[in-house]
Amino acid sequence: MNFGEIMAKGGPVMWPLLFLSILALGTIVERIWFWSTFLHKEGLILNKVMDAAIANWEVVDKVAHHYRKHPIGNFLYAPLRLSKPEPDVFHLALEAAADEELAGMRRGDKLLEAVIALSPLLGLLGTVLGLINSLGSIQLGDLGNSSTDGVTLGIAEALITTAAGLIIAIVSLAFYRIFQAFWFQQVRIFRKAGSDLEMIYRQRWLQSNKIYTS
């Protein structure tokens, strides 16, 4: 069967399933593009900012500012743009920036969750409606006669929507789990990068206070 025949035999429920599949596909493509570009540059940006923080703290804010359009760069730049903040304020700035950037990385998750939940239900609904349509015209006296030969074909066609719904849900779930794995990895990276940057700043803060008090 070609696409048109599948849509015709699946019934009206195939149209909302098609709509959900388009939404899921668009979200998946957008997320793949986001993660591919994000992960490609993340390591380079993180190394440059942390190397600058260790070698010359006076220029680390300029380095982070250069990469502020990237999530990891913007995260590290958030406390560095403050003017000599106390360590607690520096920590709060890191936490707020991390929450904002990590939340942005989960864009599209709710849509995929909706597709995963709705697709099998719509497929089951289409199958039930197809079975009702196929079996509704059968009478007890027709059982075993040639008049029921088309019932098997009708049931097979009714199952098309269930298969379509399951395929959409399975594909969406697979990519959803992949994106979730990327996100959890970023949580660990952000925590470590933030802790390392904060530790360097606290050391410099203590040294500057000792020099000032002495």
Rank of each mutant, 00 (worst) to 15 (best):
D109P: 02
A103W: 08
L102D: 10
D142A: 15
N145L: 13
E100M: 07
L124Y: 03
S146A: 10
L131D: 02
P120R: 07
A97Y: 01
L135R: 09
G136W: 13
N145M: 13
S119W: 15
T127H: 01
R106G: 03
G144Q: 12
L102C: 07
L94Y: 04
S119A: 15
L111M: 14
L129R: 02
I116Y: 08
L129A: 03
Q139I: 09
A114T: 05
V115S: 00
A103Y: 08
L140H: 14
S119R: 11
S119C: 09
S119P: 08
S119I: 12
L131A: 05
S134Q: 06
D149Q: 14
A117G: 12
R106K: 03
K110C: 08
S137L: 03
T152W: 14
D142H: 14
G141Y: 12
E95K: 01
R106L: 04
R107N: 14
T152N: 14
A97I: 01
D149F: 11
E101K: 00
L94I: 11
A114C: 06
G136K: 08
L153A: 15
L129F: 05
L102N: 10
R107W: 12
E95Q: 05
E113V: 05
R107M: 11
L121T: 06
G144L: 12
L102Y: 04
G126Q: 00
A117L: 13
E101P: 01
E100H: 05
G126E: 02
I138Y: 10
L129Y: 03
V151L: 13
L112F: 00
S147F: 04
E100P: 00
A93S: 15
L143Q: 06
A96D: 13
A117W: 10
I138P: 06
G130W: 00
I132E: 06
R107A: 13
L135D: 04
I138A: 13
G108W: 06
Q139G: 15
V151C: 12
E100S: 13
L102W: 01
T152G: 14
L131E: 00
D109Q: 07
L129T: 00
E95F: 03
S119K: 10
L143R: 01
N145S: 15
G126W: 01
S137M: 04
V151I: 15
M105A: 15
A114Y: 09
Q139V: 12
E95M: 04
L102V: 09
T127A: 00
G123V: 06
D109S: 07
A103K: 09
T148Y: 13
V151Q: 12
V115I: 02
L102M: 12
D109W: 08
S147A: 13
G136A: 10
E95H: 02
D149N: 13
L118Q: 01
G123L: 08
T127F: 00
A96Y: 02
G126L: 04
N133P: 07
G154A: 09
V128Y: 00
G144M: 12
L118R: 00
G136H: 11
G141L: 13
I116A: 05
I155E: 04
P120V: 05
E101W: 02
T148M: 15
K110F: 11
D109M: 07
A93T: 09
